[in-house]
């Protein structure tokens, strides 16, 4: 007989308790980041991979399926889709980043101005934002487009940027309202710190994490907006190649049963957007986690 049989030990646990179910740590979206980097790099240096001119219409080789000389096939006008993807991606990504730059700058300026302003000015600026927010975006875009005249990538980026800053400005304004009563902002004002000093040193570092998600989503939104506009024929003209304008050719392509003209630019667009959504979500999760740890 062993000791263990003779004595019953009260209160001892025979089994090690199962480890409490741990929340799966949110993994960094490595795959999305890699894929996105690949696409961005391809767009930047795509010209080196292929010797073909994306705008050259090779009338002897129209509507060829993928394979052989043309890895992604050719469209109804005989342009090489492989080289079009890379140069069109450059335009799409440029529009995404440039318009996000524009909208973020406007949102930061507008949001922090409204947040720091006295009550009546804040109310005025916010009502203005809400008016803009309540008018359908597409309407403003079409209106601004007609003002600018011939659409160009830079013009479209500007138009999309000018129309998509409102919700970000509202988030920034809320954050600034909270921050501006904190003692270090009061202290900086007592020392004579101006608006831009306080914005740069005290406000921006503290609200940047909460708008990071919106910034990434803004890039995504701008690319979608450009594709939508181009698809509807009010965006870039057909001779400027972007993923959106490539998709706008698809109606014709479908009639000739050439699926690759539609599918390949669509695949690239969807992959890019998916990667960005993933990255944005991961960013948001990280910010939330840090807040809950405090």
């Amino acid at each position: 007989m062993t000791d263990q049989d003779r004595f019953a030990v009260v209160g001892i646990l025979n089994e090690e308790p199962a480890p409490p179910p741990r929340r799966r740590p949110s993994r960094a979206p490595v795959l999305s980041a890699l894929l996105l980097a690949l696409i961005v790099l391809g767009c930047c240096f795509g010209g080196l991979m292929t010797a073909k001119d994306p705008a050259y219409m090779d009338l002897a080789n129209t509507n060829l399926p993928p394979g052989g000389e043309f890895p992604f096939g050719t469209d109804t006008m005989g342009r090489d889709i492989f080289s079009m993807i890379w140069s069109g991606g450059r335009v799409s990504l440029f529009i995404g980043f440039a318009s996000t730059l524009v909208s973020t700058l406007i949102a930061v300026a507008f949001g922090s101005l409204s947040g720091m302003a006295p009550g009546w000015l804040d109310a005025l600026l916010m009502r203005l934002t809400e008016i803009l927010l309540s008018v359908p975006n597409l309407l403003i875009v079409v209106f601004l487009q007609s003002l600018l005249g011939t659409p160009s990538p830079a013009g479209i980026a500007l138009v999309i940027g000018v129309t998509s800053w409102t919700s970000m400005a509202k988030v920034i304004r809320t954050e600034v309202r909270q921050l501006r009563n904190s003692d270090y902002v009061v202290a900086a004002r007592c020392m004579g710190g101006g608006f831009f000093h306080i914005l740069r040193l005290h406000l921006a570092p503290n609200f940047v994490s909460s708008i990071m998600f919106m910034v990434v989503m803004n890039i995504r939104g701008a690319i979608v907006a450009e594709s939508t506009l181009s698809f509807m024929g009010i965006g870039l003209p057909l001779d400027t190649i972007s993923w959106g304008s490539m998709l706008s050719l698809s109606e014709k392509a479908l009639m000739t049963q050439s699926w690759w003209v539609l599918l390949i630019p669509g695949l690239f667009l969807v992959a890019t957007l998916l990667c960005m959504t993933n990255l944005g979500n991961a960013l948001r999760k990280r910010v939330n986690q840090r807040h809950s740890n405090l």
């Binding site: 007592c190 005290h202 570092p205």
Partner: peptide, 23 residues
């Protein structure tokens, strides 16, 4: 303005919130 900003200084009660946590 300049004279006042230089010559008057304030120390707060809560030292945690009077210093920017990111600096």
């Amino acid at each position: 303005r300049r004279m006042l900003q230089r010559e008057r200084q304030l120390i707060f009660q809560d030292s945690a919130s009077s210093l920017n946590p990111r600096m």
